[in-house]
């Protein structure tokens, strides 16, 4: 696993650095936006507005997080499919499914770290402006962002890894609809909802093994 992580780290270090930088920039921007709001307006009125509109005050962070996950998935696996480079990974002297699993674990860990970074950043920033009643709900909102990001990462990985263009189109068509299961309103924690969002995220991780199987069947010729 260490070697696979080493390889993936070399491949993705610049992309990861860029992702963290972009997310940090959006966090900072959101922080200052909220800060300006508090300076211009009565703080209690701002709290009430957020509560009554059921709005997430750092909602912009979900966009760079999702985009980062999607791009990471693509950048991690497109180099593997271009020129059928994935054949090298298939022939490494270990179980092929394990090789792919380690690659996915790397990507998944990266997405999770990015999510943790964002969630911690949002909670820390929010604690300057809001009471616990508001920022304590952040994990219940952000958890859907995590599942959505995992789903996007896996979908991008699957489509990028698929050796044939027709297969890519088919996978994209089948997977894109799954994104519909992550659109939830904020502040409504729900075990059932979390499960409904978790299921496609988990399935999407498993789906990456499908295009990988195409390489042993002559794909990418």
């Amino acid at each position: 696993m260490k070697s696979i992580f080493y390889k993936e780290g070399i491949k993705l270090r610049r992309a990861l650095a860029a992702a963290f930088a972009v997310n940090a920039a959006v966090l900072l921007y959101s922080y200052f936006r909220v800060r300006v709001g508090f300076i211009m307006q009565e703080p209690a009125l701002l709290w009430l507005d957020i509560i009554e509109r059921n709005a997430f005050f750092f909602d912009r962070i979900s966009v760079p997080l999702a985009a980062s996950a999607f791009i990471l998935g693509f950048l991690q696996f497109y180099p593997e499919s271009s020129g059928r480079r994935f054949r090298i990974s298939c022939h490494l002297p270990q179980n092929e499914d394990l090789t792919l699993l380690y690659m996915l674990l790397f990507g998944l860990s990266s997405v999770c770290f990015l999510w943790l970074f964002d969630t911690a950043g949002v909670m820390l920033s929010a604690s300057f402006f809001f009471p616990y009643d508001l920022w304590g709900r952040i994990p219940s909102v952000m958890i859907y962002s995590l599942f959505f990001s995992v789903f996007l990462y896996s979908a991008a990985a699957s489509v990028a890894l698929e050796p044939s263009w027709g297969g890519r189109a088919g996978l994209a068509l089948l997977l894109c609809g799954g994104a519909a299961f992550f659109g939830v309103s904020v502040y409504r924690p729900s075990c059932w909802g979390a499960f409904i969002a978790f299921a496609p995220a988990l399935l999407s991780l498993a789906s990456v093994f499908y295009p990988a199987s195409g390489y042993r069947a002559g794909g990418g010729r």
């Binding site: 260490k2 080493y6 070399i10 480079r85 054949r87 090298i88 490494l92």
Partner: peptide, 26 residues
């Protein structure tokens, strides 16, 4: 079994030193 793939496939994002370090472990 050693395989040389058509086109001399390699992890071309790696350097020479990184390539050795990566394969050595396997």
């Amino acid at each position: 079994t050693g395989l040389l793939h058509e086109g001399h496939l390699a992890y071309d994002f790696m350097t020479i030193a990184q390539t050795e370090k990566f394969y050595k472990s396997f």
